[in-house]
């Protein structure tokens, strides 16, 4: 299959920070690559290089068959970019925004107008089309931003954290749009801090940390790297964390993961539900009260921890959007915690 996006050895430094430290990326035509990593990992810098916004210090990149450095305008004609912040002019109406973008893509005035109307209808914005974007809700703005990126139905799309800051309902809705887009043959490079999002949308995932791709594969391949199932316990009393850790170590088949702030202990196991029952009895016998316990198959979260040795630190990764279905093998006894299935906001 032909590659729609190829990047080799991208390096970009800002002062003493190596934002990109030799990044290789390749995305076959018609597939989705998820760039996964915490804030500051280099995801956005990578997108900015591939979309001609930033010149790399070294390395080369070819997008939709055109060299990013040598033929940037040809690249720009073939791509759509939907950024982290909804980049629409808030004093212009939805229709005016889309017409403007269409004309700047060098469509004729008439085509730009027709395409704007089409997109407004497709993105459920027809009713609001003649109101300034200032009056739109966050979800509507994000849809308008995405519509603007799709004005010429570009064969290659870049989405930089498309769902950051959206509520679960809007996030799911955006996911459906992205899925339809990809079903239509668009090649997509998507950055996200949400492991669940990469799992859900991307064919291939590249895990990025400190400007490097530290792992690459399908979600299943990455999970396989981490190994089998694990037991996760949330202790009620932080003072008993050490006791519980010691006890669980004797049941486990590998290194313990302890997140102190959440009083959470994770331990790789073999033995399934039977072992889980044993652990519960043992905890009970020792009088260690627990808030939550579950048997889990590895999530991408675990992948990240096992690859980097730390949970991904993220500045704005605090909760408030719980209740997402992470759709993968979770057999917890309790409801999903708010941070399940996404990059954790805590230090390990």
């Amino acid at each position: 299959m032909q590659e729609a996006i190829v990047a080799e050895g991208l390096v970009k430094t800002f002062g003493s920070v190596r934002a990109l430290d030799g990044v290789d990326v390749s995305v076959p035509t018609g597939t989705v690559l998820g760039l996964l990593g915490p804030n500051g990992a280099g995801k956005t810098t990578c997108v900015r290089v591939l979309t001609t916004l930033l010149k790399p210090d070294s390395g080369r990149a070819v997008v939709a068959g055109h060299d990013v450095l040598r033929n940037p305008d040809a690249v720009r004609r073939s791509i759509g970019l939907s950024g982290q912040f909804a980049a629409v002019d808030e004093y212009l109406t939805g229709r005016e925004n889309l017409r403007m973008v269409g004309e700047l893509y060098q469509l004729s005035g008439r085509d730009a107008k027709r395409r704007a109307d089409e997109l407004l209808a497709q993105f459920d914005l027809s009713e609001a089309s003649d109101r300034p974007a200032k009056t739109y809700s966050g979800g509507m703005r994000r849809r308008l931003d995405l519509a603007a990126a799709l004005v010429v139905s570009p064969p290659v799309m870049f989405m930089d954290e498309p769902t950051t800051g959206l509520d679960p309902r809007n996030r799911m809705a955006l996911w459906r749009v992205i899925e339809e887009l990809v079903a239509g043959g668009t090649t997509l490079l998507l950055t996200t801090q949400y492991l669940e999002e990469a799992d859900h949308l991307a064919h291939d995932i590249a895990v990025v940390d400190h400007g490097k791709v530290i792992a690459r594969g399908t979600a299943d391949q990455l999970k396989a790297k981490v190994g089998g199932e694990r037991v996760e316990v949330v202790v009620h009393d932080a003072a008993r964390l050490a006791d519980a850790s010691e006890m669980l170590a004797s049941f486990g088949k590998g290194e313990l993961g302890v997140v102190k702030l959440q009083r959470r202990i994770t331990v790789p196991v073999t033995g399934g539900a039977k072992l889980l029952a044993e652990i519960i009895r043992e905890l009970d016998a020792r009088g260690i009260e627990i808030d939550d316990i579950g048997l889990r198959r590895p999530t991408l979260d675990d992948v990240f921890i096992s690859l980097t040795g730390h949970a991904a630190e993220s500045e704005n990764g605090n909760n408030g959007d719980g209740g997402d279905d992470d759709g993968g093998g979770d057999e917890n006894l309790s409801e999903d915690g708010p941070q399940r299935g996404r990059v954790k906001a805590v230090k390990a």
Binding site: S108, D111, E118, D124, S153
Partner: peptide, 16 residues
């Protein structure tokens, strides 16, 4: 929400 229909879109013109 959005249903992305197949739309024939005019190619961007290469001007300069």
């Amino acid at each position: 929400m959005a249903v992305l229909t197949e739309t024939p879109v005019s190619e961007p013109v290469v001007r300069g």
